Computed example of a mutant assay.
Amino acid sequence: MSADIFLGHQGVIHRAGRALSNWIYLGGVKAFADGSLGSNSALLHEPYFDDPHNYGLQVLEFESLFNMTIASDMSGLQVAIHAIGDKANDLILDMYESVALKNGKRDRRFRIEHAQHLAPGTADRFGQQGIVASVQPDHLLDDADAAIRKLGVDRAQKGSYLFRSLLSSNALLALGSDWPVTSTYPLRAIRTAMTRIPPGWDTAWIPSERLSLNDALIAHTISAARACFLENEIGSLSTGKLADFVVLSSDSWDEFATVGSTSVNATYVGGIQAYP
Score class of each variant (00 low, 15 high):
137 P>G: 11
222 I>C: 09
10 Q>N: 13
75 S>M: 03
103 N>G: 00
172 L>W: 01
248 L>Y: 14
50 D>S: 05
133 A>T: 04
244 D>S: 09
133 A>N: 10
138 D>Y: 12
91 L>Q: 07
270 G>I: 07
116 Q>I: 04
12 V>E: 15
267 T>L: 12
204 A>Y: 11
191 R>C: 03
118 L>M: 15
41 S>R: 14
82 H>M: 05
133 A>V: 07
226 R>Y: 04
212 S>D: 07
171 A>Q: 07
232 N>A: 14
80 A>F: 00
2 S>M: 04
62 F>S: 14
54 N>I: 03
124 D>M: 07
156 A>N: 09
171 A>K: 07
114 H>E: 02
87 K>V: 00
150 K>M: 15
172 L>Y: 00
4 D>M: 01
66 F>M: 06
9 H>M: 12
185 Y>F: 14
118 L>D: 01
268 Y>T: 07
265 N>S: 10
55 Y>K: 02
24 I>R: 08
140 L>S: 04
227 A>C: 11
24 I>W: 14
146 A>R: 13
92 I>P: 03
250 S>L: 09
160 S>N: 06
137 P>K: 12
164 R>Y: 04
51 D>F: 05
254 D>H: 13
12 V>N: 12
66 F>E: 08
119 A>G: 01
113 E>C: 06
4 D>T: 09
79 V>P: 01
226 R>T: 09
117 H>W: 13
220 H>V: 07
245 F>L: 14
101 L>N: 13
72 S>C: 11
123 A>N: 03
54 N>E: 11
25 Y>R: 11
240 G>N: 13
239 T>C: 11
242 L>R: 15
20 L>R: 10
56 G>A: 08
34 D>C: 06
221 T>L: 12
202 D>K: 14
229 F>I: 13
26 L>F: 06
87 K>I: 01
12 V>P: 08
36 S>A: 15
147 A>I: 06
205 W>N: 03
256 F>E: 04
159 G>W: 05
174 A>Y: 01
245 F>T: 03
252 S>A: 13
98 S>Q: 06
21 S>A: 08
266 A>Q: 15
230 L>T: 06
203 T>A: 10
112 I>Q: 09
31 A>W: 15
19 A>R: 12
259 V>P: 10
176 G>Q: 13
226 R>I: 00
85 G>Y: 08
114 H>D: 02
109 R>H: 14
231 E>C: 11
61 E>S: 13
